[in-house]
């Protein structure tokens, strides 16, 4: 599968280009780690005009994984999880898969603890971003860079 082609197709579908580029400057990332357009745009769709704060969120994912097909990941958010003050949702995004969305989990005070875990797919080395949406309308985020090593003896690679 030609990744560049897929990503172009994605861009064409969402009709973005210049607009996406402008969004990057609104993100709290330092310029050196500015996320590519579609990641930034996907986050923007969730966060809207609210400020994205760094903190409260812990994204637990290995910095180096042997195979991107199944990568364990945990997201934990600091919150009392009461009716008045809780995490409403956890969103996870990636930078270089064909689509920027990974998951969207809806939680509430009944969760007791804002912590989820799953296994994700990473096509290549890239940044993962978790965003927590709080009941007071604030958004908090954490990111992690994951390096995917190329499996050396991939089945049928050479045939």
């Amino acid at each position: 599968m030609d990744q560049a082609l897929t990503r172009r197709r994605f861009l064409a579908r969402s009709g973005a280009g210049a607009a996406g580029a402008a969004l990057v400057s609104l993100m709290p990332f330092a310029p050196a780690e500015a996320a590519p357009d579609d990641l930034a745009r996907a986050i923007k769709e969730v966060v809207g005009s609210a400020r994205l704060n760094t903190g409260k969120v812990t994204l637990d994912i290995a910095p180096l994984v042997e195979n991107g097909n199944t990568v364990p990941m945990k997201v934990m958010v600091e919150s009392p999880m009461t009716a008045k003050d809780h995490v409403k949702a956890i969103h996870v995004f990636n930078e270089k898969n064909p689509q920027p969305y990974v998951l969207n989990a809806t939680l509430g005070p009944r969760a007791g603890r804002a912590a989820i875990a799953t296994h994700i797919k990473l096509r290549e080395s890239q940044k993962i971003v978790a965003v927590a949406e709080f009941s007071d309308g604030t958004f908090w985020t954490a990111g992690a860079d994951v390096i995917v090593t190329i499996a050396a003896c991939v089945e049928d690679l050479l045939q």
């Binding site: 994912i61 290995a62 180096l64 994984v65 042997e66 990568v71 364990p72």
Partner: peptide, 9 residues
């Protein structure tokens, strides 16, 4: 020889 996260799996 595996990473801790795969061992945990």
């Amino acid at each position: 020889d595996m990473s801790p996260s795969v061992q945990a799996m």
